[in-house]
Amino acid sequence: MAKKDSYHDFLKEDFNNLFTGINLGDVQKHFLRSRWLDQVLWMEAKANSSRDRHYFLRLTTIVGGVILPALVSLNINANFKSNNRDIIMWSTFGLSQIVAISAAIEEFFHYGERWRHYRRTVESLKTQGWQFSQLTGSYRSYTSHEQAFNLFASHVEDIIQRDVEIYATQVVQEKKEERQNQEDHILLQNTKITNLEEKKEEE
């Protein structure tokens, strides 16, 4: 945790030092700190958090998936005392539940997709910040930061707006998929009930 906080503090201090050397008005510097830097720090933290959760859940699923077949083969093939057999049996059951839960959580929250999404967005914001500070890229035709500021602010808002639109689209898509899964589940249950009723009538 200290390492993450130190990088967060480093970014904040580094960019604040950069802003100090740029000739801008108070309102413009306020935008840099409250809008651009705030979003960079927030998305950097979200990207790192999503990455860590993605790696943890995926590694749990992968390692558990590799160990499970060995435990299953021990259950089937080995002749153990009753106590040892129970331990292996419950270990197999417990590990299978952990693997299933890890996979389900990753599938539900999509931490891998979130990590890549936040990483793309924060790197776009950083790129705009560095290009603006150096008056390069789309800002190379300007002779001062004050002249380039409106274009910079516009690019920052476009990136943030695009991030919000992508997030909203993903939420809507997830809701549709969830609703479809619920409908499929209800249909499957109704089909099972109908089949049971038909069998009872035949008997």
Rank of each mutant, 00 (worst) to 15 (best):
V72I: 11
V171H: 01
L95W: 08
L95N: 13
W130L: 10
S49H: 09
R58C: 01
Q97N: 12
R114D: 03
Q170L: 08
N79T: 15
K46I: 05
W90A: 11
K192L: 08
Q189W: 05
T121Y: 04
Q97P: 03
I105L: 15
L57H: 06
Q131K: 07
M43V: 04
I160M: 00
N23K: 09
A78I: 12
A70K: 04
R119F: 02
D5I: 10
T92Y: 04
F15H: 03
Y139G: 02
R35I: 07
A104C: 14
D5F: 09
E202P: 06
I160E: 05
E202Y: 11
F80I: 08
V171C: 01
E146T: 05
F109R: 02
Y7G: 09
I62W: 06
V99T: 05
I98C: 13
G94C: 04
I186V: 12
L11M: 10
L95A: 12
Q28A: 13
S73T: 14
S154K: 11
K192F: 07
Q28P: 12
T169Q: 13
T169A: 14
E44A: 06
F152P: 02
L24E: 13
T121H: 01
E123M: 11
W130I: 04
M1P: 03
D158W: 05
N75Y: 04
A103S: 14
T127F: 02
H54N: 15
K46Q: 04
F149Y: 00
K176C: 00
H30S: 15
G94A: 00
D5P: 05
I159H: 10
D5Q: 14
T121L: 01
I62G: 11
M43D: 04
E183N: 14
T143R: 11
Q173A: 15
I98H: 07
G25A: 02
V40Q: 02
D163T: 06
R114T: 13
M1H: 05
F19K: 01
D38Y: 06
T121R: 02
N84R: 08
L41R: 13
F31P: 00
R51K: 14
G21A: 02
T194S: 13
N48E: 15
V171Y: 03
D9W: 09
E202M: 12
I186G: 07
W90G: 09
E106W: 00
N83Q: 03
V172T: 12
D184W: 03
F80V: 00
A70M: 12
A45G: 09
R51V: 06
S102T: 05
E174A: 15
T127D: 07
R120W: 00
E201I: 13
K46C: 06
K12F: 02
A103D: 13
S82I: 07
I22S: 08
V66H: 08
Q170D: 10
R114E: 02
L95F: 10
E157G: 11
E183K: 13
L57I: 07
M43I: 05
T194V: 08
L135K: 11
E203H: 14
V171E: 08
E178Q: 14
D158T: 12
A168K: 13
E202F: 11
K4D: 10
A47T: 02
K176Y: 00
I105F: 08
Y118R: 00
E178N: 14
T127L: 07
Q161L: 13
I22T: 12
I76F: 03
